[in-house]
Amino acid sequence: MGRQDWMERLKIWLMLLPALLVLVGLFSGGLVVGLGQSLGYMPVAGLHSVTLQHYLDLLVEDAFWQSLWVTFSIAFTSTLLSTLVAVPCAFLLRDTFRGSRLVNFLFQVPIPIPHLVVAFGVVTLVAQSGVLARLLASLGLLSEPGQFPALVFDRAGVAIQLVYLWKEIPFIGLVVLAVLQTVGPDYEALAQTLGATRWQRFRYVLLPLILPAILSASMIVFAFVFASYEIPLLLGVRFPAPLPVWSIQLYRDPDLNLRPGAMAIGVLLTLFSILWLVAYRRLMRYALRASGGR
């Protein structure tokens, strides 16, 4: 390797250094400290022995598996629904029509709005005595809040899903739209000249091009929802609560002996999301091959 090459290589690593420092230092560093605590290694609390007990305690507990299921199902449903709505939206937004600029703008509005704000808006709308219930009451369709379906603090987590849908449909939609606009109309036009039907153009030309974007945007959404704390805490049932809620509540308990358990839940959460990630990448590769893409 020549001196020139060596300098070049050094420069690249120097460019990467701050990012590596911050992310490996903070993220991976924090992860390692957390992993240590989950194994019961907490010198500050006088705990030095390493044990898997905190994991075993969790894995034999019914509540843990219920909680994991709740976490997964909220994340899975909201991702699936957002994706199913977002993709057609992206196609609609691609066309230019009268009012399309307004629609485009409206579609972007949810992007910068914090989840907490959305949560408050959704509660005041869909609670049993919320504005929608009042609307129905003023139309004479119901007389008591109890007659309105329970959408907040409910087992199915409808309000939680609504918050995520409101936030994530535009996110996935805009990512897909961005790719659609990069692709442009040329491929489709070419396919049309070659006699492809509308469905064929979508299935064999566009889909392979946008599938990576759909899959990776939905993966980001899934990971975000899977790890989120405040929305299920504010709008969900007390039990079973999603894993991040459980973990952080244990962490914040005055009893320091609960910390390793909190960390163990967090580590398991991390493990499950990595597992999911790996499976998802497999799926992605398979889907791409099947759809005839790269």
Partner: peptide, 21 residues
Amino acid sequence: WLLLVPIVVPGVVATMGVHLV
């Protein structure tokens, strides 16, 4: 992978770990 992993892996443990540091 190292740089992008925080996007898809929950930051709960990292934050709690970092807190002590």
